[in-house]
Amino acid sequence: MSLINLLRKIKITASMQVLLLLLLLGPGTAATAEEFITLSSTTSTQNSGLFDYLLPKFKEKTGIDVHVIAVGTGQALKLAEKGDADVILVHDKDAELKFVKKGYGMERREVMYNDFVIVGPKNDPAGVRGLKDAVQSFGKIAAAQSNFVSRADDSGTHRQELRLWEEARVDVKASSGKWYKEVGAGMGATLNTAAGINAYTMSDRATWVTFRNKADLELLDEGDPKLFNQYAVILVNPSLHKNVKTEAARQFSDWLVSPETQTLIGSFQVEGQVLFHPNAGQAVTAK
């Protein structure tokens, strides 16, 4: 191999590296030119299409892009604790208040609510249809040892489900792996599993209504006040993480609770159903 050949080869690889480097940095630099905030939220708000409906309107008004990371409430709070989100929109009041109390978050404001529903096989072997009583429904499912699929992912829905089992005096841990199936997954994946084995599960209404693979599952019990599901927006405390974009995050929070946005949320429908009911300002929990 001649020296010239070798040199040519080196030059090619060197220029290729420069090119790669430029292209690699390209997307990163392009993205920072646009103002954005990172919102960690739950799968229900994303899967229902609410964000696709709301966020373009926020961008139009403020020019701020909102990057949504849709995970369970537990994980959404963890992301925010580590400073990887600027603002969160979640649904687990106990955990949220703890989050604010520990200094990770601030300015918790309630935004909207919907409710949980108990879904299960059409033939309803445990007989929970129309009971309007979540605790009694859970008791009957346990007594009949009918298959029940649990999120088991430390999400807001999962924590609510566990509170109901506790009230029904059912020790689900003891039945784990038998009739009580802990899948450790998001709401959609859990519904897919429940549809696959024709089992009961508890879902937030938004995910259930927009879910497309219902198979033989039906909504069986709803309407118990205990199935109330409140969503709240919380700013991540910038004193722990300097990178947190508090100003833009506060603009988003203000916008969510503004009368215009509240009306928008109330008019968002899927298949003729309102999925989230606005209730901002009705109960404010400050610091």
């Binding site: 899967n47 959609g188 994946a189 519904l191 897919n192 879910f211 497309r212 693979n213």
Partner: peptide, 9 residues
């Protein structure tokens, strides 16, 4: 993964 979780198989 997202569409699977929405049940839109």
């Amino acid at each position: 993964a997202l569409e699977t979780s929405k049940g839109d198989l």
